[in-house]
């Protein structure tokens, strides 16, 4: 395989809070190839957004990226890159689309201005040229009457249209990588379908790599080619999208898949993953999923599982890879009542 566009090794991002060290991202390694769409899925608080913000070096104190973490992108280590050079990468070679389009836009400037500004900063082109480029890019995102829309302010646009503006801002410099952090979570399902359609289309057209962060396995299945499942600051499973859905290995992945209601396949009672994500200042020792897991035995309690190779480019952080017969003996997980007093 040609060298990947982005290669993350042992990324650790910790927050030094009053109640202890929150190990939000705790030893994460993965690659994104050129033109590839990789998904990250997991419950709230598993470290998805902190991973994304770390790539862009947008972590604010008391948080920091720990020494020894590496983020290689186009031949540079982003962890140690001088601020000046990092600013040049952000919005230019790597851009980000956030969940809440309203808070990512400035209410006092027209949307055209805000899209054009990205090009003025990074391409050093003048007002007129950057405005033309902005209108052109807005048109690419499917905004009707882009010349008129460009002159409007964020509050005059619907949520779906604001998300298109953010996509235009992310796209205008033709970056190598777009990080989309829950880009459709705040949108209605019909608008979500429009936006996902657009992202998939743009990805094909420009060969941009996409890191798609979501908690929705449906979005993962429809947009990505490879999937990373995060739990408690770690990657617990990684596989191609078809492999993951055909043969989920990690009990957490299995739990996520089973707890979703599926249209047209209704069951009497929904399966649940008992309990909640533990606190990042105090991840459980051994296997971090142990207390919620229906298969746990003494080994997961003693030993933190490594990422086992389970074949076909598929890895899983679960000792079942070593003792597969344990899967035949599920039992009630330790967490009988929801209650590990959450953050």
């Amino acid at each position: 395989m040609a060298s990947p566009l982005l290669s993350i090794r042992d990324l650790r991002t910790y927050f030094y809070t009053e109640s202890g060290v929150a190990k939000a991202v705790d030893g994460v390694s993965f690659d994104i190839g050129a033109g590839e769409t990789v998904g990250i899925v997991g419950e709230s608080g598993c470290g998805k957004s902190v991973t994304a913000l770390s790539i862009l070096r947008l972590i604010q104190p008391p948080g920091r990226i720990e020494a020894g973490s590496r983020i290689d992108f186009e031949g540079k280590d982003l962890v140690t890159l001088p601020d000046e050079e990092m600013r040049n990468i952000r919005g230019n070679r790597i851009s980000m689309i956030f969940q809440e389009p309203m808070s990512a836009l400035n209410p006092v400037f027209t949307v055209g201005d805000q899209v054009a500004e990205v090009a003025r900063i990074h391409a050093g082109i003048g007002r007129k040229k950057s405005w033309e480029l902005a209108v052109e890019t807005l048109a690419l995102t499917g905004i009707p009457a882009p010349e008129e829309r460009a002159k409007q302010y964020p509050h005059q646009l619907s949520g779906g249209m604001r998300q298109r503006v953010l996509i235009a801002m992310a796209l205008i410099m033709k970056p190598a990588l777009i990080i989309a952090d829950e880009p459709t979570t705040a949108l209605d399902v019909t608008i979500q379908a429009q936006i996902l359609d657009l992202l998939v289309h743009l990805q094909k057209e420009f060969g941009t790599s996409i890191l798609m962060i979501t908690h929705d396995l449906g979005v993962i299945a429809e947009t990505t080619s490879r999937v990373i499942v995060m739990y408690a600051g770690e990657i617990v499973e990684e596989a191609s999208v078809t492999e993951l859905f055909a043969r989920p290995h990690h009990p957490y992945t299995e739990g996520l898949m089973h707890s979703m209601p599926h249209i047209g396949h209704d069951q009497e009672r929904l399966n649940v993953i008992p309990g909640t994500v533990p606190s990042p200042t105090n991840w459980p020792h051994g296997c971090r999923f142990r207390e919620r897991c229906p298969y746990s035995w003494d080994l997961p309690e003693r030993e933190h599982p490594p990422l086992y190779d389970v074949g076909a480019g598929h890895t899983s952080r679960c000792h079942l890879a070593r003792e597969p017969q344990r899967r035949n003996h599920p039992h009630e997980p330790l967490v009988v009542q929801e209650g590990v007093g959450a953050a």
Binding site: V189, T190, Q192, A193, Q194, L196, D197, D216, L217, G218, V219, I220, A221, E222, V241, T242, F245, M257, M260, H262, I263
Partner: peptide, 17 residues
């Protein structure tokens, strides 16, 4: 039609409003 399906093998045709 707009609901994403959690099954990469079944990509339905979609009515996009």
């Amino acid at each position: 039609s707009a609901v994403p399906v959690a099954d990469p093998k079944s990509r339905k045709e979609r009515i996009i409003l």
